[in-house]
């Protein structure tokens, strides 16, 4: 039975016109705000005609002084992204591998724990985290990077899914047993055998964590920290153009990250299919 006849039989596949209508509608929903933002960022101060001044102005020394908070927010967000990814790699990844190989019965428990943050609104999370951060500040000081402890929790559901999908696709237990029988120690197995085969999942988890951290506003705002989103809000109150330009750049960066994740996924699927 051909693919088309199966689809017709079960009525699962929409017709060509329906597909195009859905594509155009969804495309417009995404494209209109982005095009509007681009159009706005190119508009002149008096609203007549277009100019690149708002874009080129960002590079001037004067802007560096004016938007110091914004550039600090960008720096902070990248630092937070790096520390959050480190937390994912150092804490979550080894835990998941350990549970997968040695304690498979705990897998459901771990999955439940990792999924919880997605069900808790950020505002509720902050209420819970506020007293905890009182202790964190006493122990580690009030540096911006400590916010990564909270972000490490918020990215758990996304990072868990990305890594688990890869763990399920690779015969981790057999590979590690084969390596042990050949004389490899656990650190060697992790570094030389498992990580190269979990590369796609780990990279996807890292990229999606970066995207989540760059877009985070609520926790940073309520805990009085400066990151990209809080700085954008602040900048937007005095200069709406620059806020829109940075929002566009953040969108473009997240888009590139998602493209890379998608590419990694397709490479993985092609390789499995061979």
């Amino acid at each position: 039975m051909t693919k088309q006849t199966v689809a017709q039989r079960i009525g699962a596949e929409p017709g060509r016109i329906t597909r195009w209508v859905i594509l155009v509608v969804v495309g417009l929903v995404f494209a209109i705000p982005i095009v509007s933002m681009i159009e706005f960022s190119l508009s002149s101060n008096n609203g007549h005609g277009y100019t690149l001044d708002h874009w080129t102005g960002l590079l001037s020394p004067e802007s560096a002084r004016t938007y110091r908070t914004l550039f600090q927010g960008i720096g902070n967000s990248f630092l937070l992204a790096a520390v959050t990814v480190a937390i994912v790699l150092v804490v979550l990844l080894p835990t998941m591998i350990l549970v997968h190989i040695q304690f498979p019965r705990l897998r459901r428990v771990l999955e439940f724990i990792c999924i919880i943050p997605i069900t808790v609104p950020a505002i509720v999370l902050v209420v819970g985290l506020a007293p905890v951060y009182g202790i964190v500040v006493r122990v580690f000081g009030g540096s911006i990077w400590t916010l990564a402890f909270a972000y490490g929790i918020t990215v758990l559901p996304y990072a868990y899914r990305a890594i688990q999908a890869n763990l399920d696709a690779v015969p981790v237990i057999t590979l590690s047993e084969a390596a042990r029988s050949l004389g490899a120690s656990w650190p060697v197995i992790l570094w030389r055998v498992l990580l190269p085969n979990l590369r796609r999942g780990v990279l996807a988890a890292a990229f999606i964590s970066v995207a989540v951290v760059l877009g985070e506003f609520t926790i940073a705002s309520l805990l009085n920290r400066v990151n990209l989103q809080t700085a954008l809000l602040q900048a937007g109150q005095s200069d709406p153009w620059v806020a829109v330009i940075f929002a566009l750049l953040a969108l473009a960066f997240a888009f590139v990250l998602l493209l890379i994740i998608g590419r990694l996924g397709s490479v993985s699927r092609n390789r499995s299919a061979q």
């Binding site: 015969p171 057999t174 590979l175 047993e177 084969a178 390596a179 029988s181 050949l182 055998v193």
Partner: peptide
């Protein structure tokens, strides 16, 4: 030395 039931090449 061990050979497994499932394919175990890295």
């Amino acid at each position: 030395g061990m050979v497994f039931q499932s394919y175990s090449l890295f």
